[in-house]
Amino acid sequence: MNIFRLIGDMSHLLAIVLLLLKMWKTRSCAGISGKSQILFALVFATRYLDLFTAFISAYNSTMKLFFISTSLVTVYLMYFKFRATYDANHDTFRLEFLVVPVGGLAFLVNHNFSPLEILWTFSIYLESVAILPQLFMMSKTGEAETITSHYLFALGSYRALYILNWVFRYYFEGFFDLIAVVAGCVQTILYCDFFYLYITKVLKGKKLSLPA
């Protein structure tokens, strides 16, 4: 554990808490892509199956349980409790266009051809593109609530901080996981346009609106 990894995890945690708070306080999930949230639930469910096969640390297990449970709660809130506020008309990204190619790639490019390892790889690849339905939705509506922008900034920062963590681990521990690093870089790059808008607009007190 290094400082980048720790801040990255905390940023990830903050993102999820922000999203849940937004939904709970406003009793609404307007502006949030349910499809991205389904993908995140799938990401956690397929990645953390090792909860049952390996114990790494109390921190590790607690965080995994937190991510799995909160992602399920988020999906529940969106599709059941606050379903009336869900903006399905703008959430039209086709999930099969992500899940099918990512599944195929996980079969072809992995560290070890075993069920758990393929599911872990699937999860890493899927996470890297899971935000696309959300970004697609924002590009259709042309805007995002400020709290949603904070959520996305925290969520995007998490993987960017993991990249610094991997640089650190490469130099000081000789650790290098090509699959995680490439997918993490792809994931971070997808957020760059949003990061730019966040810094130039939201941090200056303006609402995030996309150029027409």
Partner: peptide, 10 residues
């Protein structure tokens, strides 16, 4: 094992 090197990460 070797393939689980990254699994301490979340």
């Amino acid at each position: 094992d070797e393939t689980s090197a990254g699994k301490d990460e979340l």
